[in-house]
Design a protein around this nucleic acid. Structure first.
Lengths: 125, 125
DNA sequence: GTAATTGCAAAAATTTTGCCTCATA
DNA sequence: TATGAGGCAAAATTTTTGCAATTAC
């Protein structure tokens, strides 16, 4: 666990948002001005493989990361792409789905989408 | 509705899989050898804005598209990234979630993940 | 001391765009 | 025929990688 890796995790955990790799790069750079974007990518990849953070499925073009390793639901703004956590307990109906397609079911996640407070007020102007 | 756009839709509807833009490009190219990748991208974007097809949130680095404009659930293979449709009716508990975060709720989707038949047998060898 | 990691820069991969020509309605 | 769309190629964006130097344990 290098300094770079530790600080990537710390910065990611500091925010409740779900930043993209280059947002994280900018955040980390305030503390480690010499860190390179490649290192940030390499660490995000490693950390998510190890289950210390998670990659979240993204609607847009860029990946987003979540400092919370525990699966939970998100809501994504359809206007600006921002992703927030959502208090939501996965109901049993989801975990007990019966697959008939040959897949081994490993998990599930509910994705909500909507319009975030900022974008709502933008469209009111 | 040009020939290119029509054939993009036709090819996308032909498959039950959820191809990436360049997979669609290759499929369409068999019928229209001169089509350009840019056109495919432009049409996929337009068609999904118009609700004729949909972009689906993807775990990986590339976007995937779905020829079926009706929202439905998917299961993604954690090994190979392949995405299949899933017969699954959204339960009421999901549509009646009470948000307290200022978002306007527009919809929701359940994402399942697992290991596809091919990848299951790969790991058995 | 050894193996893993970093920084840097180049490359790869994916998506978007400008511009001029051509096709569609 | 006017407008929107296509083809091509360049650019922009996002992610990955090779390599020599450095760091963690």
């Amino acid at each position: 666990m290098t300094r770079q890796r530790r600080i990537v995790v710390e910065e990611l955990r500091k925010v409740k948002s779900h930043p993209t790799a280059d947002m994280i790069y900018e955040m980390v750079r305030k503390r480690l001005p010499n860190i390179s974007l490649g290192t940030v990518y390499r660490n995000l990849e490693l950390l998510s493989e190890q289950g210390i953070i998670q990659k979240i499925t993204s609607g847009g073009t860029q990946r987003r990361f979540d400092g919370n390793p525990v699966k939970h639901s998100h809501i994504r703004c359809v206007s600006c792409g921002r992703v927030d956590d959502l208090q939501f307990e996965t109901p049993d109906v989801l975990t007990q789905v019966n697959l008939d397609n040959g897949y081994e079911l490993l998990g599930q996640n509910v994705e909500f989408y909507g319009k975030c407070p900022e974008c709502r007020s933008d469209s009111n102007t």
